[in-house]
């Protein structure tokens, strides 16, 4: 039963619209910019009406950027591929390591378990630059500098604590009796883990995986220091748009649109699991 007056509903609608406009306008503006040339972007006053062009996308995809100062090569598509590769592999590795670890932390009390879990979380507190410089030197020594494996390893600092702590909470919420019941029915603990614990924690695993993916995707400083041009993700690759002849706003906007697309698609896809998982809910009597 809704007990809201017309005025209340109108005010609520206006406020929601204002908030949406405030937060979504920059995104809309970037989307529009991506279909404009640099001249159109920079004209004063700015206008919502322009003749759309796909030249920004074309130059990103072909890798050839035409500017007034001449032509230059862009590695954007390779950067995008690197981002996909680095983020996907990092999250996959973090899930393989983190989900069983989260289960262990949730279910078993072993010596120092809380300390270990907290130490892993504390990786998220330290400023990345603090560890990065010594790490860069070590990586050069052991040959991991400028390798995908080295970057994926370092990305675990981002992904692993996140997955561990989010998924652990979901495992803790599962009644141990449900797992006991499955074991007593005659299943090994491994079967219980894969067929009871993981499916029931799936919304948490999906949420944590998604979040970790976005954090990895948006990471800038690790790749900036530890990778050279051909291994760099889009976040670092976007620096190339700051050229000698000026900042290529149109290309930057198009690059943003392209680089947001994979995470957006993933979020929309994972949303189904998030909602489905929530509706499973508790089945207590």
């Amino acid at each position: 039963m809704e007990h809201t007056s017309v005025v209340e509903r109108v005010v609520r609608g206006v406020l929601i619209a204002a908030i949406l406009a405030f937060f979504l306008f920059p995104i809309l503006w970037i989307f529009l910019m991506s279909f404009q040339t640099n001249e159109q972007v920079l004209r004063i006053p700015p206008s919502l009406f322009f003749e759309p062009t796909t030249i920004n996308y074309a130059s990103l995809i072909t890798g050839k950027l035409q500017t007034s100062a001449g032509s230059m090569d862009l590695a954007f598509m390779q950067n995008l591929g690197n981002s996909v590769l680095l983020s996907t592999c990092s999250v996959a590795l973090a899930l393989v390591l983190g989900v069983p670890a989260a289960y262990a932390f949730a279910r078993f009390k072993f010596p120092l378990s809380e300390d270990i879990a907290f130490t892993l979380l504390s990786f998220r507190f330290a400023p990345p630059l603090l560890v990065l410089l010594p790490l860069a030197l070590y990586f050069q020594d052991i040959g991991l500098n400028d390798t995908y494996i080295g970057l994926i390893w370092v990305y675990q600092l981002i992904a692993l604590p996140l997955i561990l702590w989010i998924v652990r909470g979901y495992f803790e919420d599962i009644s141990p009796d449900i797992e006991y019941a499955y074991r007593i029915a005659g299943h090994s603990w491994l079967q219980t883990f894969t067929r009871i614990a993981i499916p029931l924690a799936m919304p948490g695993i999906a949420a944590a995986g998604l979040l970790a993916f976005i954090f990895c995707w948006n990471n800038f400083v690790f790749a900036l220091i530890l990778a050279s041009a051909d291994k760099q993700p889009v976040t670092v690759g976007a620096l190339a748009f700051v050229t000698a002849s000026g900042i290529q706003y149109g290309q930057i906007a198009a690059a943003i649109v392209l680089s947001v697309t994979p995470t957006l698609a993933l979020a929309l896809y994972a949303q189904r699991y998030l909602v489905e998982g929530l509706s499973l809910g508790a089945v207590k009597g």
Binding site: S175, G281, V283, K284, G285
Partner: peptide, 8 residues
């Protein structure tokens, strides 16, 4: 089990 513990 007392709380049923059905597999949800």
């Amino acid at each position: 089990f007392q709380n049923f513990a059905l597999f949800p």
